[in-house]
Design a protein around this nucleic acid. Structure first.
Lengths: 135, 135
DNA sequence: GACTAATGCAACCGCAAAAGTTACACAAAA
DNA sequence: TTTTGTGTAACTTTTGCGGTTGCATTAGTC
């Protein structure tokens, strides 16, 4: 895997869960299917739990399941839960901009990126994880 | 600096050059202004030369200058010259997709990213490097 | 012709971010 | 109480990238 593997892992896992919403899966199962490590899975899915998309149970017969109906979870929900920002906006420099050209440039570019980020989220919001399987 | 520093460096430098299009600048000058290294500058500007945006002269009194009128260089030209892809599309896996869900998912997500990337380029194409200064 | 000042390029170093790994505490069902 | 799971911290490994050094080449200048 390379970059964006967190998002890939999350989307892939949720899409599978959408197929059998009642089934509880362990991190080990998920990791095996995704070709990665259970701890990595818990790290990623933990974010989705914080966002209210997943629930997890400890102990024997514990594991992960959807916290909502799959039709109510969009790709945008997953994307936002991970705080990924695929459209890499320049971090806002805390120091005063060195020169005015740099300032004007940053303003212009980050404005464009902002719009693009919004349109990305809007587009991702049009698809739920239950729709993906039949796509 | 962090990520996207190549694009920042390129845009910043070209914007300055747009102010005095005839002036020839050395990598050392540019590096000093940008707070980086001459070799890094040459690496980045080299890409812009390949794309026909800049020209460079070797030897004594050599350096860099714009290869076109600044009004004819858009932010999109610079972005594309660097081959950056701010909208990080999942690299297309060379192997056959492990499962059908993954395949469907990838298709859907990369479709969205493709659209977003296009709209980014379109928006960047609306501004030339000579317009930035007055923005 | 020698000198100087520039690009071009390859090789390497060092750092930082992210994935992967190990280890262990805690929780709950059997 | 044993077994099977999550939660989390700490460490290792990998990777990408900026930075650095070194040197060949080129082109003006003395």
């Amino acid at each position: 895997m390379k970059r964006n593997s967190r998002l890939s892992l999350a989307l892939h896992t949720l899409s599978h869960m959408a197929g059998e919403p009642e089934r509880v899966r362990t991190s080990a199962d998920i990791a095996a299917h995704a070709g990665t490590n259970p701890v990595v899975v818990r790290r990623v899915l933990g974010k989705l739990r914080e966002a209210g998309l997943l629930a997890s149970e400890k102990g024997h017969a514990g594991g992960w399941r959807l916290a909502r109906a799959p039709q109510d979870i969009t790709l945008a929900d997953v994307y936002l839960a991970l705080n990924e920002r695929l459209v890499a906006a320049d971090e806002t420099p805390r120091e005063a901009p060195a020169c005015s050209v740099e300032h004007a440039l940053h303003k212009r570019v980050s404005g464009v990126l902002e719009e693009v980020e919004l349109s990305l989220v809007r587009k991702l919001g049009e698809t739920s994880i239950s729709e993906v399987r039949g796509a």
